[in-house]
Every structure is written in C-alpha cells, then in structure tokens.
C-alpha cells in the first residue's frame, strides 16, 4: 500500500476502512512536551513525532476570558460564568452563567464570528493543512449547558423540573456552535472533536430516556451540519456508555473516543459490537500504564489495543483521555513507537 499522509490516514480510519497504518494523534501537556523536546511547542512536537493530526479545544483556543482573581486563577468565561484554571491550564467551571430563567431572558450570546477566535486555527492550517488532520474541538451542547451555562446542579434539576429551560438553553447554544463549526470548516478544519462527558465510571449521568430527550438531538444537529460540509465528527465522552452507546451512534458520529477502560469499556467488545459502524479512538490507559507503567507495559498495552480493535481499519490508537502532565514522557514515546511497530496494515498480530 502506498504511504498515506496523516490526514488520509485519519480520514480513512474514520470511514472504518484500513489506512496504511493505524493513525495516532493526541493533545499533549506542556510538561510532557518539555520532557520529549525541551523548548518545543505542541505544533513542533506534532511534526517531530510525525503525528497524524493536531487537536485543540475551543475552551482554550477560541473562548474569551477576563481575569477576576489572578492569585486564585479565576476568570469569567465568555458565557458569563466563573472558571478556575487547573495545573493543566484547563479552565474548569465552578459558577454558572445562568441562575434563573430571567437571566436567560436577558442573555446575549457571545459573537461566534469574532475573528480572533480563529487565529490559532489559521496558524495550524497554514502549517499543517493537507498533511495532518486538523482536529478542532467543539464543546458538546450538553457539556456546555451543564458545565458553563446552568451548572451541574441547575442543569440536572431543570431536566426533571423544568425541561423547557433545557430546550431553550440547547437552542441558544446550538446557534452559537453551528456558526462556530461553519467558520472552522470554512477556514480548514478537517475533523470535529465533540468533547463533553456523558457518563460516569459506573454508568451514564442520565437515563436513556433523558439522553434521548436532551442529549442526542443537539449532538445529531452538530453532526448532521458537519456532514453537510463533508466533515467527520468524533464524539468524546469518558465513562461507561454501554447503556446508551447505540443512541450516540444513531446521531451519525464517525468516531468514538476513548472507549474508557477505567469505566470497564473493553475496546475488543466495542469492536465486536459496533466497530463496523464507528471508528474506535482509544484506549491506552492514561490513568495507569502511561502514568505509572513501564515502557514495556505501555508497548504491550498498545499492541493489545491494536490487536483487539485494529482489524479491518476503523481504529485511531490514542490514550484513554489525553497525554496529561502526569504521563511519563518516555511512556508516551513508547506508545507512539508501538503504534508504528504494530500498527502497519496488514496487521500481523495473532
């Protein structure tokens, strides 16, 4: 088979077909980059490791924030709620934007067309377009509504007591995200990464009935819109999604990440159950092996993921969440090396 570009590899896997080798890309924390290529940027690392894609999220690269308390690393996000930055530089919401329906009546959405939102995307497009998949994060409507807009408690309460409020919030947030998607695609996004957790370790956050009523319709709208532009979508959710995986797949998503091993999701079982419908993206453990295992353990786990889920294509081998700051740099390198070692098609693993 001729050698493919990273972009071709990712797009082929997302069609559940066999590329020349199992593709791989990740978000990588600064500390890990520093351990691999001191002084380098994430984009440099993508090139250095010849990753097949580059991924970033909207929260960190296209939302605006204003400082509220510098010492405590508290900022107000563009939706109006408060966030606090973790050691990973991820803004975690802790005070929602909307506390009552009255707040919503007077609410003015941020403007998705502001040019500065797309500066990083433009840089990435300039450097990587056509060679590596440009994977743009779009926060899921459920996650955005729950985490930033109404807050966990307010959102879950409204699901039971005031479902119309959720409908209003979903509609509002969809109008922003659809516009954001359009702008990203016009500027060169190749793949959308729809991030936002729907499940806990034990089970989904909400019942099937609520997932059907509130979660999947807006996701389906995002996916259908991206598809109307010919752009595939990967849905990310941690947790045990066995009870609702079919609902997620019915939205038409092209990829599913990370098939959370911490939540007991076995990627071999996923391959057997729905590996022909959706590209599996995962699931080398960034809770255990990548953090505290040996390089050989990482190599073996990566091999196992490819063995279980790589057959026939439809696998993007990735960690079980991201290469966060607790991952040993040498272990991440061992994972990338193992993907190259064992991921050449046709696979010869059994």
């Amino acid at each position: 088979m001729r050698k493919m570009s990273g972009l071709e590899r990712v797009l082929t896997a997302l069609k559940c077909k066999e590329p020349d080798r199992v593709p791989h890309f990740e978000r990588v924390a600064k500390r890990v980059i520093e351990g691999i290529l001191p002084g380098a940027s994430y984009e440099d690392l993508v090139e250095y490791l010849d990753l097949d894609g580059i991924r970033f999220i909207d929260r960190t690269h296209s939302w605006s924030y204003e400082v509220v308390d510098e010492a405590r690393r508290v900022k107000r996000d563009q939706w109006g709620g408060l966030v606090r930055y973790t050691t990973e530089d991820n803004p975690i919401p802790f005070e929602p934007a909307i506390r009552s329906e009255k707040d919503l009546d007077n609410y003015v959405l941020p403007d998705p067309d502001e040019e500065w939102r797309y500066e990083y995307l433009k840089q990435v497009v300039k450097r990587f377009k056509g060679e590596r998949a440009i994977v743009v994060g779009v926060t899921d409507i459920f996650a955005l509504g729950r985490e930033n807009f109404l807050g966990d408690v307010g959102y879950f309460r409204a699901m039971v007591k005031n479902p119309d409020l959720i409908d209003r919030v979903n509609e509002l947030l969809l109008s922003y995200q659809l516009r954001y998607i359009k702008n990203c695609i016009e500027l060169g996004a190749d793949v959308l990464w729809i991030n936002g957790d729907w499940a806990m370790t034990e089970k989904p956050m909400v019942s099937r009935q609520f997932a059907q009523r509130f979660l999947t319709p807006p996701l389906q709208k995002l996916v259908e819109y991206a598809h109307s532009w010919g752009v595939p979508c990967i849905k990310h959710t941690d947790g045990n999604i066995w009870p609702i995986y079919d609902l997620i797949l019915d939205t038409g998503v092209d990829g599913l990440h990370p098939i959370d091993p911490m939540a007991g999701m076995d990627i071999g079982e996923a391959k057997a159950k729905f590996g022909d419908r959706v590209c599996l993206c995962g699931n080398v453990s960034c809770a255990f092996s990548l953090v505290s295992g040996t390089e050989e353990e990482v190599r073996q786990e990566t091999k196992e993921v490819i063995r279980k889920a790589g057959r026939g294509g439809g696998l993007i081998c990735m960690s079980s969440n991201s290469i966060h700051s607790g991952v040993k740099p040498a272990n991440y390198l061992a994972m990338v090396k193992a993907i190259r070692e064992f991921g050449q098609y046709p696979l010869a693993l059994d």
Binding site: D152, V153, F156, R157, M159, V160, K161, M200, K203, P204, M205, V206, S207, F210, P243
Partner: peptide, 10 residues
C-alpha cells in the same frame, strides 16, 4: 440503574 444524577439532585 433506575435513578441517575438528575433524580439524585432533586
């Protein structure tokens, strides 16, 4: 598996 987070909250 009858109740989830919304039911716990209310």
């Amino acid at each position: 598996g009858e109740y989830y987070l919304p039911e716990l909250i209310v």
